[in-house]
């Protein structure tokens, strides 16, 4: 049973992980995007629709990435160029995504697609305990094992990463050195949207292999919260994402094993857990936050 929960945690957490990794990039540049939820929704829909039309889940992922990126671009225009409030702008994206996916998605409800199914990796999957948890997953989950470390490397060990972090810490330094803060932030926010789109499509094309209205139900917001207590570190995002995935997987696994549980009491778990972690890690995490982001967060703090 523990294996089931953890394996469900990995497969369910992958979606949150992609979104949270994207949001890490965006927030490292000083921009928080509550529209992550909306970008995931757009990705979930675009991924499903294009997979359904073309029969290729890879094209679906490409469309999902584009859809998430385009939606995030609106956020970038509003908050970077127009200096709009980041929280309000993010939520407007959510509304837009809810409406767009409802309008175009009604025909796709209940459809079946050629989805990403789990592939057991020969050899590795027969390792006791770890095998079924980590190596009986779908291809997108396998890719995600490499994405987080790669992102860590880019953010902390490359020139691009340095520029990204500078935009979030002391943007005037970029300006002084002749770089464009605006450009860096646009790229960061759109990158965040692309990853959120992939995370959303993971849900529709690989995890639940179906499309229904408002199918993200809060995962995007969890992803945003996750970035905070992962202290803007891609490697810590991995652990957090699997933790939430496991919390999400608990209720179906318990039910499958014949335990009488109220599903909704358990559905609360990931959100309560997020809140508790923010309380216990929040202060320490906030202290390590990018300075420009802190201004957005602590607008009323002295």
């Amino acid at each position: 049973m523990i294996v089931d929960v953890l394996s469900g945690g990995v497969s369910g957490g992958t979606s949150i992980m992609y979104a949270a990794l994207g949001e890490t990039v965006s927030e490292r540049a000083g921009i928080i995007n509550l529209g992550t939820e909306g970008c995931m929704l757009m990705g979930a829909f675009a991924g499903f629709a294009v997979t359904s039309m073309t029969g290729s889940p890879w094209l679906g992922m490409l469309a999902a990435a584009a859809a998430g990126g385009v939606l995030a671009l609106i956020h970038a225009i509003l908050v970077v160029s127009r200096k709009a409030n980041q929280f309000a702008s993010g939520l407007s994206l959510l509304f837009l995504a809810l409406g767009l996916t409802a309008l175009y998605g009604s025909g796709y409800v209940g459809q079946k697609i050629n989805a990403f199914d789990p592939i057991a990796i020969p050899g590795l999957s027969s390792i006791p305990f770890i095998g079924p948890i980590l190596f009986e997953q779908n291809i997108l989950t396998y890719i995600s094992y490499f994405v987080a470390p790669l992102m860590w490397f880019i953010i902390f060990r490359t020139r691009i990463g340095l520029m990204l972090r500078t935009a979030g810490e002391r943007s005037e330094v970029l300006t002084v050195n002749g770089y464009s803060v605006v450009k860096v932030r646009y790229i960061a926010v759109v990158t965040g949207g692309i990853f959120a789109g992939i995370g959303g499509a993971y849900l529709s094309v690989a995890y639940s292999q179906s499309w229904f209205e408002n199918m993200i139900i809060g995962r995007g917001f969890i992803a945003v919260a996750l970035v905070v207590f992962a202290a803007w570190d891609p490697l810590k995002v991995i652990g957090g994402a699997y933790l939430f995935g496991s919390a999400l997987a608990l209720s179906p696994v318990l039910q499958a094993n014949g335990y009488e549980v109220n599903q909704f009491a358990l559905d609360m778990l990931p959100f309560v857990l997020t809140l508790l972690l923010l309380v216990f890690l929040g202060k320490r995490a906030v202290n390590s936050s990018p300075a420009e982001l802190r201004k957005v967060f602590d607008n009323a703090r002295a």
Partner: peptide, 12 residues
């Protein structure tokens, strides 16, 4: 739910 498009666009 399509009406949410209008709500979102309005705020944007």
């Amino acid at each position: 739910a399509s009406i949410n498009i209008l709500t979102g666009l309005l705020l944007i």
